[in-house]
Design a protein around this nucleic acid. Structure first.
Lengths: 229, 229
DNA sequence: CCAAAAGTGTTTAATTTACACCCATGC
DNA sequence: GCATGGGTGTAAATTAAACACTTTTGG
């Protein structure tokens, strides 16, 4: 019985994370300023190397927790980037992940420690290596995914207004939506709980707060319901 | 300046290919019978290890050509599988690719050399490692992709009948489609060339042959057209 | 002449889009 | 009392779904 494929080449495997947040108006990504070579001082995605005892998901979780302090972040594997010279130091394949966090939850201290900063996705700087391509890929996936899974809520506080939700979808899809049609669509989905509570910060009248009803959603999915915006 | 990330773990990186074909009635996948350990004699996807000077796409192309004799096969990267013990011999991460070929083009000799066989996707055997999960993933991706990109044609001969095309979509989507609605939809897309030629093998009346008009399709896409079935 | 698959349109239902006014409140 | 964002419904247009008969021709 074999116990190694000894003649085969081994490579470094990195995981890079596109971390999305939403600050009530704009879709943002969290970038770090590299304090090590190569490309020291340039903006970059947060990443790290896969360790021997980890799955890719484990590595992504570890990297996300290191930077944000949050565990159990929503994330998905995106794509493997493998151009031979993509990392000038050494042959490295990188598997990109995208993650969604409630921007209010992040740990300020860690953000500072890693010289991290939130950038509007439309105003993000040039990134090292092939990280810009990873971000484009992540945005496309996010647009697709938010249209058929209720993951937008990962980017919002637990309680949110209809208008916030609409603005989120507008930011992600990069298009304006009709207020009435949007609300009708969301209400038809019947997966939100309308609270007896208003957010008074945005207007004199105040606007009702909602919560995502995950249990109800899961039950509906079992019964064949498919989310679609 | 660094020239290695020397302390980091390196891993074996494999590429496994889910190769789809269509034999006029059924969606098929091409599997090989492993003639080496571990799991010798079991059915498996065709795969191989990433070599130092290759991208993942290069590796997938090489593996596909090795088994089928065909170059420039349509393929897409699917997903990275990384369970720590997924390969009992040695830690190996595998990036799965799916590929579409015209089943008539494959090289018989190579099929024999690798003890390969086409299986109806619905009747495929148990596969080694996590290959069954890869196949499920590939089927979902194929269903999604054929609905919004005209890649179904990769599975057909250059000239095909409407009925063949419909059967292909039925096999991929795993549902029956209405003949008239299907033809109307396809004709509305306006991306096929109707030939003055009939396939007489399926009926006495014969049925017209069509070709995919790639140039016309590309031009339409430039003008904002989006394929949708 | 008949069996077998090819070919062809219309009606109905469902979904999506467009669109404008009143409401509640703090200042 | 007025400025500001919140909240609400309907009609029109588009898209999707259901549905059945005639054509062709080799045997």
């Amino acid at each position: 019985m074999l116990n190694s494929y000894s003649k085969e080449d081994k490579v470094l495997l990195a995981v890079d994370c596109i971390i999305f947040g939403f600050d009530k108006e704009e879709l943002k990504i969290l970038l770090i300023k590299r304090d090590f070579e190569p490309e020291k001082g340039k903006w970059s995605l947060m990443g790290g190397f896969l360790q021997r005892a980890e799955t890719l998901d484990d590595a992504a979780n570890r990297i996300l927790q290191t930077l944000t302090g949050i565990n159990n972040i929503y994330m998905e594997q995106l794509y493997g980037f493998s151009k031979v010279d993509r990392d000038p130091v050494e042959r490295t394949i990188s598997v990109a992940y995208f993650a969604l966090i409630n921007i209010e939850d992040h740990n300020e201290g860690l953000i500072e420690k890693y010289s991290a900063r939130w950038f509007n996705v439309k105003e993000a700087p040039e990134l090292i290596f092939d990280h810009n391509a990873m971000v484009s890929h992540a945005i496309r996936r996010l647009q697709y995914r938010t249209s058929n899974k209720p993951i937008g809520f990962e980017l919002l506080p637990e309680k949110f207004t209809m208008r916030q939700l609409q603005k989120l979808y507008e930011a992600i899809l990069n298009e304006r939506l009709d207020k009435r049609n949007f609300i009708n669509k969301i209400n038809n989905l019947d997966i939100l709980i309308k609270l007896n509570e208003k957010d008074m910060s945005s207007s004199r009248k105040g606007s009702f707060l909602y919560e995502f009803d995950k249990e109800k959603y899961d039950k509906k999915v079992e019964d064949g319901f498919t989310f679609k915006i």
